[in-house]
Design a protein around this nucleic acid. Sequence first.
DNA 1: CAATTAATTGACGTTAACGTAAACGTTAAC
DNA 2: GTTAACGTTTACGTTAACGTCAATTAATTG
Lengths: 135, 135
Amino acid sequence: MSDKGFHTISELAKEFDVTTRTIRFYEEKGLIQPRRDGQKRLYTPADRVRIKLILRGKRIGLTLAECVEVIDMYDPDHNNLEQLHSLIDKVAQRRALLIQQKKDIDDMLAGLDEVQTLCEQALARSGSASRNSVN
Amino acid sequence: MSDKGFHTISELAKEFDVTTRTIRFYEEKGLIQPRRDGQKRLYTPADRVRIKLILRGKRIGLTLAECVEVIDMYDPDHNNLEQLHSLIDKVAQRRALLIQQKKDIDDMLAGLDEVQTLCEQALARSGSASRNSVN
DNA sequence: CAATTAATTGACGTTAACGTAAACGTTAAC
DNA sequence: GTTAACGTTTACGTTAACGTCAATTAATTG
């Protein structure tokens, strides 16, 4: 289908379970810049990876702008010293945010453990109660 | 200030670093139901905890509706069997989501490590380069 | 007691992230 | 050759989560 390792928009939409509109929207916002075959968009593996990174960011609650920030950290367009230092700062900040998020998640997971325990206890009681009522 | 262990809206707003508008908004949406002293809202410690849980949820990208879902798991209003089973299901689903999020975060953290390493290498190079140019 | 200061209600505004619909072009198959 | 299937552009619609502003009331303080 897509000959030289390119992907079509609907392939990617299917793979990542988003609509084509969404992918075009990311392009509108400058998050990806696919090649063109006449009218049609052609997505390189690199484009695919960017979409993957965007969706991963979204899953942990980043805005598209924040996704861009994170993705931009990867590319080697940061030659001068100032940019390097500011990038290091950004990395540190982002790391702190992510660690806070992990803590929040762990807290929630602990909460879920409690809830589950309570549920199971309640079930056990109602189970023995019904067994009793059967006797 | 707040006599019998109640909090005022501005106390909580300050504590959690949100606006009073935000707290009232959560009330509008039914997320909290503070007492009243005439006009004024009075927040119990339980209200405070709910706000805390809401904000924790938001930090990991939950919508307000999802926050409610999670918070509702805590309260013991689920007496009958069907509800218990559906609650257990929900706990399992939520757990899976949270685990996926942790994975996403770990992936991102690994990415940040790479970026940081690259930055530091680039800095080291430019550092020795400038030292050379000084000599 | 007059003047801030804090709180409330109501209404409208705003931004992000898409959804939806219309109207059109392209190509592949029958 | 026309009917699908897929893709494109343009444009308006929508929802969530607040912000902002105006008018009003209540409480406090010099």
